[in-house]
Design a protein around this nucleic acid. Structure first.
Lengths: 135, 135
DNA sequence: CTATTCCCTTGTAGTATAATAGGTATATGA
DNA sequence: TCATATACCTATTATACTACAAGGGAATAG
């Protein structure tokens, strides 16, 4: 289950892409437009800024701005930054202690196949795809 | 992320299918074979019994037994019983309060497409498929 | 009757989620 | 220069979930 962190991050990036402004957009504008708590969004955006997905600017006239074009943001990248690795089971997360039962685990191949599918799905989708998505 | 509940449930069903016994298999055998806490498995198996996926029998010679053939257990069914609905986001879980932003949410179509993919993946796979899966 | 086994209820340490609160640093513009 | 706007930083919190553990009750075979 994807938590609000990942979903909100995506919505903010889509929001900024839709504004399509060269100026910095202040967080309170984004938050009220999206109906999300300002203070909570702050925490989420910190991660995006630290990883270079957004640029933040302080002071009057400050705010946030995209650092790339919408088609250069992969959804999978954003979800992994905010939610952690996109793995379905604990034993497949990077850095997990190797499962002692690994060699004859009957379910492992399924989880691996699933994870590949999920990874492909989210890494083949960009913010631009979300913009042009029609309901 | 699929928790141990769903993973353990699958492993128990695969275990029972592999035993391929007409007798009831006591839980402590399954648990030691799988290296899982008996008490924890008890909780998980209760759900499976209540929903008719397993038959439990008390007393000496008792234990658990499959109620269907392995190919008649869909992985998706088992995961939903133990983990809850296989939805990626809160607003798509059955019985969720409708999102006020639903009509113009730019990310909703992606989540819907994703959920369909996940659902198909797990409902097109059975316990029998896990048995014959080669590493 | 007794040992075995599932069934049922309760508790619990640890962790994550979704925030809230309050302060600090920095930039703008009057 | 100084008030204001804004991002940034640290801490706290209520709630819920996870992954068990504990102890007993009920049924069943021999």
């Amino acid at each position: 289950m994807i938590s609000t962190r990942g979903r909100y991050a995506l919505r903010v990036l889509v929001d900024l892409a839709e504004q399509d402004s060269d100026d910095f957009v202040p967080l309170n504008e984004i938050a009220t437009r999206q109906g999300i708590s300002i203070k909570y969004l702050e925490i989420i955006l910190k991660t995006l800024v630290r990883n270079g997905l957004l640029k933040g600017h302080r002071g009057k006239g400050g705010g946030y701005k995209l650092t790339r074009r919408p088609e250069e943001y992969r959804v999978g990248e954003i979800l992994e930054l905010t939610e952690g690795p996109l793995t379905s089971v604990a034993c497949l997360t990077p850095g997990a202690e190797p499962c002692p039962n690994r060699e004859n685990c009957r379910t492992l191949p399924m989880w691996e196949k699933f994870d590949t599918m999920v990874h492909d799905f989210f890494y083949n989708m960009t913010i631009k795809d979300l913009l042009s998505e029609d309901k």
